[in-house]
Structure formats: C-alpha cells, structure tokens
Nucleic acid binder design. Structure first.
Lengths: 327, 327
DNA sequence: TCCTAGCACTCTAAAATCTCGATTGCTAAA
DNA sequence: TTTAGCAATCGAGATTTTAGAGTGCTAGGA
C-alpha cells in the first residue's frame, strides 16, 4: 500500500515525465511538495523497490515503469474537462449531417490525431442489425454486369462481374432466386445461408451456376467485411521515443498488419488502456481503445502513442467521441 | 563531349554507387579498366569539372551529381532483361481476370515496391471514354435512399442521401428528368451539364430541388474523381539516404499531399525520369513515371526512390506494366 | 603527348579521453 | 522522521587521437 505522500510523488513524476520526457529528479519534486529533496529521494527509493519507478542509469532521475503508469492510470489520474476549442472542432464534424458514420469517425479521429499527436485506428464493421434489403443487377454490356446489394440501414456494396455466354434471363432468374431466399437476412448470417441453403437451389435451377454463385457470394460477403483505417500514422515520427529508424519500421509494419489491428477488439465496452507489454503492438507504445455500437455500425476506435502518453486527455476524448456517436 | 574512357568511368561510378552507396575511389575503377589509378584520377577530375561528379569532402571518392545521373540515364544506361521470377509474379496478377484494372495496378505496384524497395504511386481516373449509363434510386426507408450511378464501362458510384418530407414520386421524377438529359454524357462533361442544363429544369419542375440536386450532383461528380494510392510507403525507411527523421517526415508529408501527387501527371506518354531537383517531391529523390490509358481508365504510375536508384530496373518494370495494361 | 609510380597531404569515421553537471545514496545531526 | 551535506556515479557532449582511404601533384618512362 502506498502512503499518501508516495502517491503524490508518483503522480508528480508521471505527470512531469509525460510533459517533459526527461527523467525526473528529486529536486523538481521537492519544489512542489513541502519536504526536502532527501526525503523525496528516500520515498523514490521505496517506489523503485515496489517496481513503480525505474532509473535509466545509476545517477539519473526516475522514470515511471509500466507498473507505475498502471498505478497512475488506475488510481491517480484525474479527468479534466476538454477545452473549448477541441470540443468545437469535434462538434463541427458531429453536426455535419451529410456525413456517414464512418466518415464522422475518420474525421473526428483526424482531429484527435492532430490535437494529440498520436495515431488513431478505426475498425469499422456494419452492425449485425443490418439486414439485406435488395439485390439488383445492372447490365453494362453483353458481357459485364454490375451486382448491387443494399442493406436496410442503407449500406451499399457493388461488384462488376464478367460473364461469357450467359443469358440475361439466366442472371435475372438467379437474382430472383437469391432475393427470395435471402432478403431480410442479417448480414453476418449471409455467408452461411448462401452456402447451405441457396447454393443447392441455384445449382438445381440455373445453368452455369458456379460462376454466378461465386460472383454473388463475393459481393454479398464483402458487405460484412471489417474496415480498418489508420489515421495520423506520421505522428509516430514526432515522438522522441521513436527516434530510431528500426523502432519506426517495427511500429509502421505493425500498423499495416491488418490481422494485428483486427485483434484489438475486445468484448469489454469501457475505455481500455494497454500499456507497453500489455498490448500486442509494441512494448514501447500504449494503446487506448473502446468499442462503439449503433444500429448501423459497430467497431473499435483506438489511439496509439508512446507509453509516455497524455492518458487523461486521450481517455476524455475517446469517451467524448463514443458518447457522441452512440448518442 | 566525353571521351569513351570518360563515359566508361562515369558509368562505372554510377553503377558502383547505386550498388554500394559509398563514394567510389579511383582504385576500384582502375581494377575494372586497363589503366592506373592515377589516370583514372585525372579523368575523374575532369568529370568533376564538367559537373558530372562530386566529392563529399576533399579526400573522398566520387559520387555522381544530378547532372551525372542525368548523363547516365540519357546516354549510358542499358536496359537489361527482367528476370524470370519477377515477370512470373507480375503475370499472376495480370492473368487474374477477376480483378478490376485499379486492383491490377495496385497489386502490380505492390510487387514492384517489394522487389525494388521503392515507393509507388498510382493516380487513377476513369477514362473520358466513360459515359453515363444509368442512374437509379433504391429507397432504404422513408427518409434514406441510395443513389446509384453506373457508366457504360461498368463503373459504379453510390451515395446515401437523407431526405425529410420528400415524396418518393418527387424523387422518381427527378431521377427521370436527370436520366433523360444526362445519359450518354462523357463523365468529364457531367459537371457542366448538370449545372447549366439540368439544374434549371429541376428547379422548374421539382419541389425541394436544392436538396435533391445537391445529392445527385455529389454522386455524379464523384465518379470522375481522381484516385490516388501510395504503395510501399514504408520502403522509404529502408534507404540510408533517408536515415534522418526530418527527411523522412518531409517525404512522408509530401507523399500524403494529394495536390502534389496530382501534379505528377504530364502530357508526355513516355517513361519520364525526374532526378532530384527536377521533381517537386524532394531534392533527395528520383521520380520515374509514366502515363497509361485504356478505354476504362487512365492515369499515371510513378516510382519514387533515392536518386541512387536502380534506374534501368525501374524503367524496365514500368515499361512492362504499361505494356501489359494497355495491352 | 600520354600514362603511371610515388609521395605528401587531407579528411573522415571511429575510438579514446576529458569535462561538466545533474542526481544519487549514505551519514550524521536536528 | 526529516534534512543538510557530501562523496560517488554516470551520461552527454566536447575534444583528441588514430588509422585508413583517397586525393592532387610531380617527375620520370613509354
């Protein structure tokens, strides 16, 4: 258990280190507290023994350890108000009724990346609530046609398919068959339904069913695809902890790795903080993320920055966004 | 005018420097030529006076100047055959008839970026040959509807619009009006036609014409939008000439700057090489680019790398791709 | 006239050394 | 329990040293 004074010292060190990125010495702390630097040093020694602080070398000031950040985040952090300008910028996005949700997310995370200098990730999926509403076909010429699928929440997916020696009637028949069987199906059940219920029917009634089936399968399953967008990647370059090219390479390649990003999802619905080794990205970063869900979309938004991250500001901003879009 | 021997020396220096990225000394050259290092040194001195070579400091080996690269590219470069593995990889993409052209371009440039370690840019526009084929509307619910536009080459664009208190008949009427007037129009004339011919008609016959007009305007003009894609951006990090973070920041921000990328287009239809200050990106890079045109698409592909770039390989690859897609 | 061997000279990159100042841990006294 | 005082530690930056690669120039040979 930490004493009140130890907590104060830890808090000051974390805040100071986040601000200045330099190991914090006892002098700086004792100026802000009513005690001598020697006292602070004794306390710091104890905090170090508990694993909350670290030294970069024998005679350096202290730096928070991951455990130290964790303690700060769990027990000491105070959420301040967002400042007016930030809220104003974000509001202009939320108030723009022209934009689709995914645009709103991207734009608001652009703003957040700009004001925080961190990197954001949006992982967006059409919500399970989307049901198929209509499949239609527009012939372009004798060989190419466009398949268009719309969900009841207004999502649209389309794909061109090239068919040789398939009559338009054959296509229309397929469309009708599929439409009759699949309209109203939630998008995450489409794939199974196609494979087990619809494929056999088409195979029975339609010539060249394989080509047609595959084409429709593609466009129908595309609609439930996850969509990953990384915003403010270049901000990585701004932080001194990523001053060496190899670290940058590593983080950039992780940010490009879709499979890794898809894994940042979690069941939990709060705002989650993963410090250093707690996340899969890199021991040098912190990932703060939360899930969101509306009737149309669901997904995850995450902010990635150095462990020395402005925790309360990021948590505040994510919370604000989440509330706005779930509104 | 350069003597044969001077040309040989320049060529060797350029090739050697491209390979090893270290200033080239007279010793290395005289090993490959039938003369002493002193002779080579004398020639190098002359080449330096002509501005084709540079020294990094008084007693270093020589490095090609921009003018030196230019001379090499214009007069000395020999285009070798592409190796079989590279051609094979690219062929698997070109042979995949499932893919749309823009996918083919992106995928083949991914391959090129991978084998060369350079960065590629695709700037893709629907070709002027595209003409509007059909505009249709799918109502999602009482307030949201999807507008879908298809061109005769099979391109599709869609957009959701939200309408309050607009009857479906009113919408259908608008669609019919627009369809009648605009079908068959080449996409790059759509914008003007909408503004000067169609807007007045809609204004006359349709209530709430402004909302409807704007919605249709957006989706109809989106279809002729330029599409910029940057491939292999992280490759920038691989080259020692971009070893410092500030240069990386600079180039990354240039690569993100759409307006800059849109300017890489040129009327010329050959493969163009812009070395250092000859391009607008950065004095540290070379941009090699070419235009392409098919009935459906047209645009530019460009490869960006350090000035110390493998010129003949990149030219070869671009030439190959261009021929394949224009095929 | 052109080429080349030889040599003094230049300059860098890396290693080694020095210096300064910040910060620590410890001790002893308040 | 706190604090003042002090020797000890270490890094960051400046300075020096060293080794080696490469040059320009000169003078003699083809």
């Amino acid at each position: 258990m930490l004493t009140k004074r130890q907590e104060n010292i830890l808090k000051l060190i974390v805040m100071e280190y986040i601000k200045l990125a330099k190991p914090v010495g006892s002098k700086l702390i004792c100026d802000k507290l009513n005690c001598s630097s020697a006292t602070v040093r004794n306390e710091m020694m104890q905090l170090e023994e508990m694993g909350l602080l670290e030294k970069t070398h024998t005679s350096s000031g202290r730096v928070p350890s991951e455990k130290g950040y964790r303690y700060y985040v769990d027990n000491l952090m105070e959420l301040k108000q967002l400042n007016g300008e930030e809220v104003y910028k974000l509001q202009t996005v939320f108030n723009n009724s022209q934009l689709e949700l995914s645009d709103v997310l991207n734009k608001s995370l652009e703003i957040i990346s700009e004001i925080t200098s961190y990197t954001s990730v949006v992982l967006d999926t059409k919500s399970h609530d989307n049901k198929l509403k209509e499949i239609s076909v527009v012939p372009v010429n004798s060989e190419i046609l466009v398949v268009i699928v719309v969900t009841d929440q207004g999502y649209v997916e389309h794909k061109n398919i090239e068919l040789h020696n398939v009559s338009l009637e054959e296509v229309q028949k397929t469309v009708k068959l599929i439409n009759d069987l699949i309209i109203g199906t939630p998008i995450d059940e489409v794939s199974a339904k196609l494979e087990f219920e619809i494929k056999p029917v088409i195979a029975k009634y339609v010539k060249q069913h394989e080509i047609l089936y595959n084409a429709f399968y593609d466009v129908l399953t595309d609609i439930s695809t996850k969509n990953v967008n990384v915003v403010g990647k270049n901000n990585i370059l701004k932080h001194q902890e990523f001053g060496n090219i190899d670290k940058i390479k590593d983080i950039f390649s992780k940010l490009d790795d879709k499979s890794l990003l898809e894994n940042i999802e979690e069941t939990n619905n709060d705002i989650n903080i993963y410090i250093g080794h707690e996340n899969k990205m890199s021991p040098d970063v912190t990932v703060i993320k939360t899930n969101y869900k509306t009737s149309k979309d669901e997904g995850t938004i995450a902010i990635i920055g150095p462990k020395r991250m402005d925790y309360d500001k990021v948590v505040n901003l994510l919370d604000y966004i989440k509330k706005q879009i779930e509104g």
